[in-house]
Design a protein around this nucleic acid. Structure first.
Lengths: 214, 214
DNA sequence: TAGATTGTTAATCGATTAACAATC
DNA sequence: TAGATTGTTAATCGATTAACAATC
């Protein structure tokens, strides 16, 4: 059906559009023009229309866009109308924080199990889910379909875990480890490299200071 | 001095270059050509040379790049040779995880205080730092220079906190809240929108499945 | 119908890749 | 010197912005 490939730049903007549309919806506003939305979001109206048109005509000439409808459609494009089973792999501080991030749960991202390499945490419960030993991972994957594995392990362990996840048929990896995972192209990887983000921030502080001195 | 503006696309790639160079250094390798590095990192040699040349000549014709030197220079560009004072604003699960992320500390990112809105956590210590009431934030900023505030609060509280931080002269905000902060241009903001990242992942799972069915 | 605003084509801009002369 | 590989200019590609005809 859809065969035109949509650029990741566009996809990357969809969540932000959806967030703003959600806010407007909450405020009880019914419709909005690309021009007005552009003013609020600080992007060009042209970009907004181009972005939406990648997925077909969501608007109406002379009227604009219906907020509630557009919000829902973007949700569907992002796959938020379906629920996802999730696995926590690495039950340290960061992993615990993510599993406790209740918002995910209410939005169709459901953790079904948690694994860790350290015996210290086996049997402990985080976010209402019992932590299991890493050795059981392969077995678990044989019996259960997993959509997304959240990978919050030190890098060496992360590489190993990614292999086990891939072999076990896990669809996607949300990778918080500081490595580039080499997985077959059938497995989707989304990286969250926190230190990279912090380093970028550090660069921009320096740059800002330099330009202020000038 | 430097006045040519370097694109954020380039800056965004520097941490990854640095990571690979660090690995190579650890392996005891001394030099590398853009061609070889391109093979390892799966980017074009042309891009590598262009990126590095934004900052002047790091290499040598016929030889390549000295790994140790390049690693250090990229660190300097990113401002990693200087230490930064950090503030945790929002001491929930995610905030605690970040403050406990020891790597930061060993790398010159030092937390000096933590604040929260909930009286339940006042006086508690996380990552060796005592959590103070949010009301004390403005006073703290008057007395202490803060480079980076890590903002891990629900969005409404985050907007307020961002204002207080800005007024107090905080240089930069590492924003984990799901809002776009409106701050003066002198304050650097780096967003980590976790749910946006997860939604992108969700889209790509869907897309992968569709293309496999074809 | 007139006004508003989309959908879409065309123009511009910026980023990536290719090519090659300079030079170690 | 010959070979290797950078630094840099030129060509290509893709993404953003502008313009406008279609249409509600």
């Amino acid at each position: 059906m859809e065969n035109r490939e949509i650029s990741q730049a566009v996809i990357g903007r969809l969540p932000r559009y959806r967030r703003y549309l959600g806010e407007l919806k909450k405020q009880g506003i019914e419709r909005i023009s690309s021009k007005e939305l552009s003013r609020i979001m600080h992007v060009t109206a042209s970009q907004i229309r181009q972005d939406f048109n990648n997925f077909g005509g969501f608007g109406q000439q002379g009227y604009g866009y219906n907020i509630s409808y557009l919000h829902e459609e973007i949700g569907k494009i992002l796959g938020l109308d379906k629920s996802h089973t999730m696995l926590l792999v690495g039950a340290g501080h960061l992993g615990s924080a993510l599993i406790n991030y209740m918002k995910f749960r209410t939005r169709g991202f459901n953790f079904v199990a948690a694994f860790d390499i350290s015996p210290d945490v086996y049997g402990r419960s985080i976010g209402g889910i019992e932590v299991l030993p890493m050795e059981d991972l392969a077995g678990f994957l044989e019996k259960n379909r997993v959509d997304i594995a959240v990978l919050t392990l030190p890098k060496e362990a992360a590489v190993e875990a990614a292999e086990a996840l891939t072999r076990g048929g896990c669809r996607a990896i949300w990778n918080f480890a500081h490595v580039d995972l080499m997985v077959p192209s059938s497995v989707v990887v989304e990286n969250v490299h926190l230190s990279d983000s912090l380093y970028k921030l550090s660069y921009n502080i320096k740059r800002r200071e330099l330009s202020e001195t000038e």
